[in-house]
Design a protein around this nucleic acid. Structure first.
Lengths: 336, 336
DNA sequence: TTTATGAACTAAATCGATTTAGTAAAGGAG
DNA sequence: CTCCTTTACTAAATCGATTTAGTTCATAAA
């Protein structure tokens, strides 16, 4: 039951390996119909399957890319990944997926191993902590696109949400509805988590622009399990803001848990808006007003840039994709 | 800027390629400390990275598996996939992910291409329509595990939910709460979609067991966009069942949309229970009683079986993993 | 008749590792 | 001093394709 190789096909068809190879690569120019038919028959008869590994070795390309994400369980990731896979399918590429859980050591290992596996490029949601490695990849001209975060000092393609705009959309919407006391809920400050820092900074800017005071107490940046404690505190002191802006789906869940625990009514007791258009936004009561990230476009753009890099057509660039306000009922002022 | 190969390292360290290879594979038995050091230095100095493709060609193993799913956007898939990836990481394997959208043609292409890429095994959520191909894989002793669905006539490992049990849990819970008029909501009948058919059949059995009549009108198996029409119809005739069992997350969403549209109250107007513990189940109002699939265990089991097959230790087997009732508030009878 | 041209192939090198079979040198036994 | 073992390596074959540089044969041009 040995594996069938090209040599076997060649022997059966009574031609050389070279000719079989030409046939498989559709270089038919100088090939008689007769020969083509014999090869086709031999392939069929032997049930021959080319070994792509051997071909990759010679051609120095594997038609495979590595996608390194924090966690596919996260909705943003899943959607971006799906878009990337669709693009790859169209180009005959395959996708190897790796989860880092935001651990730089895991990230380093994955990059090393996939690089050794000769992947043709990487799309990475970077932890941001392996600067030396990112640099080496760029030096080696290994196609590389960052998604969601940039890394300071690394001159690579990056596809990000326009966080400034996303926050503007959220805050302006709340302000337009007549809310003046607006709080923000986020995970803890972490300098390398670009979108988080950008959103928090943009929030303060947006408040200023609306001529609203920035209340320190209403900027809650805590580990998820501490968020509800902080909110509890505010509630008991009767200092809850009129509206809460959750900077992502995770923190949104915390706010919803808090709201449910105290049987508060949205938007009467607190209005709510968040980044990430969670799947249940429209069936929730009230339906949730959100800022949707253009996740599929992000994935598509990342893949496009990667392919462009493979063709050597580009110099590094940063892309800020536009978020979209999806107006529902969780941030409607009574009477509006 | 040529790529550094083992030959370069060998030359610099003044040893043969063979010795470098031994070193890399940690076959240190007959190697002097001196030589080891020289090789280590040469590797460091040249920044040598072994080419895993070349190694794979010789060793006939790629340490890569293919995971073919319907759609990673689906929660079940994402979670199973995550568990598979974790297991693979522990074993030094990588995962290539493919989405078929339940299209047999796409499935066939992916299997063909990944097979040609010499993946060491497959975990597949099968469309069920490529029986000839599945058979060939098994003949070729290509490790293969099915997840979520089995395929009739194919003797392969399969990891499935214990659908009978899942439905029993749901129906018995409703019955225990005092509900007597129970409806089911599902996507359309499709013989090859094993879990769907099993759940619908089990539902009828469970009703019988509870000595409840099986009302044809209350078994709704329709394309998702037609489900709400059917429910509307029942509502207008005042024939809505007391409780609805949604067989998966997709249909659950339809039911929730319907409930919201008519401003019905759960569980007073209709009680609700579903398979798939959706992420918002606990923050929804009322919180949703669900039957959780053991998604991570399913992924883990599938990967375990695949590795066992690679070691040639197994004969095909079917695994039915246990669902779990998560009791919340959407199926509580008033007064209970 | 000789030479040139083009069609239809093929032999052998190559990709970058692993592995088998073997060699050279040192040390120990008899 | 010879022979055998063991240590520490190496040469060359191999994996299964692709690709380059030919070769052979038939036909056409000079």
């Amino acid at each position: 039951m040995r594996k069938v190789t090209m040599a076997d096909v060649a022997k059966l068809a009574n031609v050389s390996k070279s000719t079989v190879s030409q046939y498989l690569n559709k270089r038919y120019e100088y090939m008689s119909e007769e020969t083509k038919k014999r090869i086709a028959e031999a392939i069929e008869q032997l049930q021959y399957r080319p070994n792509v590994i051997a071909r990759s070795l010679k051609q120095k390309s594997t038609a495979t890319i590595g996608v390194i994400v924090f966690n596919i369980l996260h909705m943003l990731t899943t959607q971006v990944l799906r878009a990337i896979e669709d693009m790859c399918q169209q180009h005959g590429f395959h996708v190897i997926v790796c989860n880092t859980d935001d651990d730089p050591e895991k990230e380093r290992q994955y990059i090393d191993m996939l690089w050794a596996k000769q992947v043709d490029g990487f799309i990475i949601f970077p932890t941001g902590k392996n600067v030396d490695l990112y640099k080496k990849m760029i030096e080696a001209r290994l196609p590389l696109v960052f998604v969601d975060r940039t890394v300071e000092g690394i001159d690579a393609d990056a596809v990000l949400l326009d966080n400034e705009r996303a926050v503007q959309l959220a805050v302006r919407h709340l302000v337009d509805q007549g809310y003046k006391h607006i709080g923000l809920v986020a995970p803890p400050f972490a300098p390398h988590v670009v979108p988080r820092m950008e959103r928090i900074a943009a929030f303060q800017r947006a408040l200023c622009e609306a001529r609203l005071p920035v209340e320190k107490e209403w900027i809650i940046a805590e580990r998820v399990n501490h968020i509800s404690e902080r909110l509890d505190g505010l509630l008991h002191q009767n200092k809850l803001p009129e509206a809460i802006f959750a900077i992502n789906d995770l923190t949104l869940m915390e706010v919803l848990t808090f709201v449910k625990k105290h049987q508060l009514s949205i938007p009467n007791d607190v209005a709510l808006i968040s980044i990430d258009d969670v799947p249940f936004a429209s069936v929730y009561t009230p339906s949730l007003t959100t800022i949707a990230q253009p996740t599929f476009e992000m994935g598509k753009k990342a893949a496009e840039r990667l392919f462009m890099q493979m063709n050597g057509e580009t110099s590094p660039q940063m892309f800020r994709l536009a978020p979209k306000l999806i107006e529902r009922d969780s941030a409607k002022k009574r009477g509006f």
